[in-house]
Every structure is written in C-alpha cells, then in structure tokens.
Amino acid sequence: MKRTLLALVFACAPLLAHAGCEDNVAKWVQQLQPGRALDENRTAVCKVWPANTALTIAALPLSRPGNTDIQGTDDLEVLVADTATGAVVAHRYEKAALQFDAVAIRELVIDTAPYQLTPQQRAFGIRVDYDNMSRASPYEAKALSLYVMQGSTLSKVLGGLNVKESGGEWDENCAGTLHETVRTIAIGPADKSGYAALKVTSKTNTTVSALKAGNCVDHTKTAKPSIATLQYRDGHYEVPKTMRYSN
C-alpha cells in the first residue's frame, strides 16, 4: 500500500461545525448519559465526517463530582451520529478519560485526516490539547486517539499518542532551554492482521537562548528524526511509553 503522509494539524474543526449540531449535543448527552451534564469549562465538539458526510462525529466531556474549574477528571462520550436526523449510530463511553490539574485541557479537536487502516475501515481521531499556562516553565502537549466503527460501537485502536510536546525552562527574559517534539503518521502496508502499520516519525528540536552583548541569541539543534512502526495487535496499536501522553 502506498504510504500517505498525514498532516495531523489539518482536517480539524471548531465547536459545532454544522447546522443542527448544537441542538443535538444536549440530546446526545441525555440519551447516552441521562442526568449527566457537559463540563462547561471543556467544550464539546462535533463535525461532519468528510469521508462520509451522512455521518457526524462528536466528543462530549462529562463533568464528574468534585471537579473544580482547574482540577478534576471528566468522562468522555465519543459518538458517530446520522447527520440528517441526529440519531446515534455508534458510540463509546470512556470513564475518567480526561484529567486536568497542573496541566489544563485547552480544547478537544476532531481529526478527520485519512487514516485508512484497511480498504474498508477508516479511522477518525479525537485529539486533546493540553497546556500548563506557565511562563517560566511552559509545557504543552497534543494527545491523539483513533477510533473505528464496529457495528453500534466504537473501538479505540490507538490511545494517547503524543503528536506534539514542548516544554522547558527560562528566566522570562531570554535565558533558557526549550524542546519540542512533533510526530507525524504515515500509513504503511498491511500485515497478516489486515490492518496497515502506522509509521510514526518523531522530529525534535532543542533551542537554547542566552543574552550576549545585550542581545538575546537563540541556538537551535535538530536531532536526527526517528521512525517507529506500530503494528495492529489484539484490536489496537500499542503506543510506546516514550510516545504516549501521561498526565
């Protein structure tokens, strides 16, 4: 199978991307999780699936008891619905899927890049963007999970791949060090499972800044890219610990 490089930052959309989606969000919550409420501080998202516009994808963060604005845990409903009627076609409930404390959840993003895992099976992504909002010790991460439809359920075939991570320390004036790792996914050939391998390329830059003669000077070093191959086994792709987002 010819490899297709996937830009993980495209094919994403903001909250409530099509007419009627806003009304359906409340209906979906009450249908799937009666009595539960959306987390008002973490926005629900939905988007028509470009690969099949008859379907709409949504991710609904559900608040749990004891949460505050800056600390807590949310459950997550991921669903696929009929675009015309709003009827839920398939869904997956993930308990305690979203955790926020020193690192906050900035947003949820629906990723509809062409993750064609088999000739018949295309996945979609839900990405969680994190940020610690610190100036002196900045940190941010983007964790991607992939889902496929299997009847009336959704299966998570990839969980928490850190597609972007950056962080460092600086004096809030000039001096400091910042590292950034960006990962992209290419679809490789299928193996005996029938599912394509995922080729994950990691590129890391490290920037050291220092004050010299009154000027802030940056020196950036780029490490040699590394490539990891993720194979489909036992219903999912195993993400190496070094590439997985951890709260």
Rank of each mutant, 00 (worst) to 15 (best):
K47Y: 11
V48S: 12
V48E: 12
P50Y: 06
P50W: 02
A51Y: 10
N52M: 07
T53A: 14
I57C: 03
I57H: 07
P61E: 07
S63R: 13
S63Y: 02
R64F: 04
P65L: 00
G66T: 02
N67D: 11
T68N: 09
D69H: 13
I70F: 14
I70Y: 14
I70D: 14
T73Y: 05
V78S: 01
V78N: 03
L79K: 04
A81N: 11
T83A: 11
T83S: 13
A84Y: 10
A84S: 14
G86F: 01
A87N: 11
V88P: 03
V89R: 14
A90G: 07
A90W: 02
A90N: 07
H91D: 10
R92W: 03
Y93G: 03
Y93W: 12
E94G: 05
K95D: 12
K95Q: 15
A96E: 15
A96Y: 12
A97Q: 10
L98E: 05
D101F: 10
A102V: 13
A102N: 14
V103T: 15
V103P: 00
A104S: 14
L108H: 08
I110E: 02
I110S: 08
D111S: 09
D111H: 07
T112G: 07
T112P: 02
T112W: 04
A113L: 02
A113E: 13
Y115I: 04
Y115W: 10
T118M: 06
T118D: 04
P119R: 06
P119V: 00
Q120S: 14
Q120P: 01
Q120K: 13
Q121Y: 06
A123P: 07
I126G: 01
I126E: 01
R127A: 15
R127S: 14
V128F: 04
V128S: 01
D129T: 08
D131W: 13
M133D: 12
S134L: 09
R135T: 09
A136P: 02
Y139A: 11
A143V: 00
A143F: 04
L144G: 01
L144M: 07
Q150H: 11
G151T: 08
G151Q: 10
G151V: 04
S152F: 06
K156S: 10
L158N: 07
L158T: 06
L158R: 08
L158E: 06
L158M: 14
G160V: 00
N162F: 00
N162Q: 12
N162A: 15
V163N: 04
V163F: 03
V163P: 02
K164P: 00
E165G: 11
E165P: 03
S166C: 09
S166V: 02
G167E: 05
G168S: 01
W170M: 03
W170Q: 01
D171T: 06
D171V: 01
C174R: 02
C174V: 06
A175W: 00
G176D: 02
G176N: 02
L178I: 15
L178S: 10
T181E: 08
R183V: 06
R183W: 10
R183K: 13
R183H: 02
T184W: 03
I185K: 06
A186G: 14
G188F: 04
G188S: 09
P189T: 14
A190I: 03
D191T: 12
D191W: 10
D191I: 00
